[in-house]
């Protein structure tokens, strides 16, 4: 111990000294003998030492408040109880959260599955707009203007691939039949229109459903067609078409392919076709009402190929062929003899 250092201590130094504090506070024999020893050497600053000791005595004079054992024990019990309660609450919360999120997740999955299974996809092409639709099963459908194709979102998971058509569309159905002698239901592709039902395996064909008539033209392969009204079935050969009205079959013939599928390349092929028919096509595709000056004009028959890529080009052609004047008012077009 640096005995001699203490000799230079002032009262403040003593008061700040931890060893001195312990000596005054606890009176431990080791400390007492040390300080007695130091005092016996009659240090010069004995007064500082004594003053510091007195001051500390007064500073430490506040009687200690004693904690009762009961207080200590009961408080500890309470603390442990509160901690237990807190932990239980948290555990319950975690468990609840776990189950809660599990249930929520399965509900979500179920809801999604239900929605996926139940919901339908509706693809609608506007006037003057063609649309190519890729079906989930790999088939492609080219929608003509002003047409609607509807199918179930889960088409791949259903027992049969079925689509509903209003308007006109060209189908390229993906062939998924493995064994030709054993055709499973799921391998069939079905197009349903107002008046007809087309059942195929994998072919290309055109279906046109307008004004209560359905015209089906087969391009390649083989298709089975039936009227909605009767159960009578027809087998179509490539290059032939069949037409259905509300009461069943209207006509069937070997039509030149071009006329049914010409729209794909933006044309219509007419062969002794009346102006009325052409104008109706125009109305269907572009959403106009065409009014003729004289009925005779509508009965005029035309041959040839007309571009329908744009309404302007079509109107321009009609104007020249029919020698008429064309007046457009909103969505109505007037054709007048010149």
């Amino acid at each position: 111990m640096p005995n001699n250092l203490y000799t230079f201590y002032t009262t403040e130094n003593f008061l700040d000294d931890a060893d001195f504090l312990r000596y005054v506070k606890y009176n431990r024999p080791v400390d007492v003998s040390f300080w007695n020893n130091w005092l016996s050497s009659s240090p010069e600053n004995i007064k500082s030492f004594q003053e510091a000791r007195l001051q500390l005595q007064i500073l430490l004079s506040y009687p200690p408040v004693t904690v009762s054992d009961d207080f200590k024990m009961l408080l500890l019990q309470d603390i442990n109880l509160s901690i237990d309660r807190h932990q239980n609450k948290r555990r319950k919360k975690v468990v609840r959260l776990f189950w809660g999120s599990g249930i929520a997740a399965s509900l979500l999955v179920a809801a999604f599955a239900l929605w996926f299974y139940q919901s339908t996809v509706v693809v609608r092409s506007d006037y003057a707009e063609n649309q190519l639709v890729h079906l989930p099963d790999g088939s492609d459908v080219q929608l003509n203007a002003n047409s609607t194709l509807t199918y179930r979102r889960a088409i791949n998971w259903l027992s049969q691939r079925a689509v509903k058509l209003e308007g006109e569309a060209y189908f390229k159905v993906k062939h998924i039949n493995v064994n030709q002698k054993q055709i499973k239901r799921g391998e069939l592709f079905i197009v349903i229109t107002k008046n007809a039902r087309v059942q195929v395996l994998g072919t290309e064909f055109n279906v046109k459903e307008r004004h209560n008539q359905t015209n089906i033209t087969l391009v390649t392969g083989k298709i089975q067609v039936s009227a909605t009204q009767s159960s009578k079935q027809y087998i179509l050969k490539p290059g032939t078409f069949i037409e259905f009205g509300p009461n069943g079959r209207l006509s069937a013939s070997a039509q030149t392919l071009n006329s049914s599928t010409a729209w794909l390349s933006g044309k219509i092929v007419v062969n002794q076709t009346s102006v009325n028919e052409i104008l109706r096509e125009f109305e269907d595709l572009y959403g106009y009402t065409v009014i003729l000056d004289s009925p005779a004009l509508g009965n005029k028959k035309i041959d040839g190929t007309i571009s329908i890529k744009s309404e302007e080009s079509l109107l321009f052609t009609l104007k020249n062929i029919l020698n008429v004047e064309i007046k457009k008012e909103g969505k109505t077009i007037y054709l007048k003899n010149r």
């Binding site: 200690p64 408040v65 904690v67 207080f71 200590k72 408080l75 500890l76 603390i79």
Partner: peptide, 10 residues
């Protein structure tokens, strides 16, 4: 708790 309650209480 047991070691420190007394000074804390004071």
């Amino acid at each position: 708790y047991n070691r420190n309650l007394s000074p804390l209480y004071h």
